[in-house]
Write a protein that binds this DNA or RNA. Structure first.
Lengths: 107, 107
DNA sequence: CACAGAGTTCGATATTTGTCGTACAATGAC
DNA sequence: GTCATTGTACGACAAATATCGAACTCTGTG
């Protein structure tokens, strides 16, 4: 059995360009930007801990987009899913990108 | 009369976050990434000088998205439109973002 | 076991987006 | 002025996206 998370992380890895486009697309939504920003400041957090103005299913959708683009990863912890910003992986492939985005947002 | 270019550049300027989302969205398409990358390397270029695998109207659409997000600006020169990457404006508002994106792409 | 909590998955739907072809506008060349 | 060049504007249309509600899975707890 292949874990969902594994497949998700690999989903868009063909050429460097495609992956970059996927990451940028994942970040180009206000709600997802907010998720990334809060994950950056608050460390690991469960999906429900964001107080987002959307329903559970929409929330789930946004986390999936971020997961499949490789921006975050999710692990199960008891009843909840803990989300983590994949700082190292992002920094490795796109040096400076995450910080540029996070810094711009809080201007 | 308000020039088209002026309106375009101002189109998405409300909050910092919204503008960032617009810029990221503009960059999250392979063709537009290629346009930006070529503009970065080759300096100013006319729309037709990109040899893109799309029709004129689609091409026009992509340049408009980039223009409205503030990523490029366009000026008329004879029969053609010359496109310029708005390096300074981008660097001013989102320090390091453009370079992070351009560097990642050529990995 | 039954039940509540936390997310995911599955349609459904409205909006946005990428693409095209055709028509149009502006400019330089004849 | 007429024509070719360069790009824009305008529908049209298919695919992707954001959103929702309802049904489902998994986990811990009574």
């Amino acid at each position: 059995m292949i874990a969902e998370t594994e497949r998700a992380e690999v989903a868009s890895c063909e050429t460097g360009q495609l992956e970059l486009a996927a990451v940028l697309h994942a970040m180009s939504d206000p709600i997802r930007l907010r998720i990334v920003s809060e994950l950056n400041e608050g460390g690991e957090r469960a999906c429900g801990a964001f107080n987002l103005p959307i329903t559970k299913s929409t929330c789930s959708h946004h986390f999936r987009v971020l997961r499949e683009a490789g921006v975050i990863s999710t692990r199960v912890a008891g009843k909840s899913r803990i989300n983590v910003l994949r700082r190292e992986a992002l920094e490795d492939r796109f040096p400076g990108l995450l910080d540029a985005i996070l810094h711009a947002r809080s201007d």
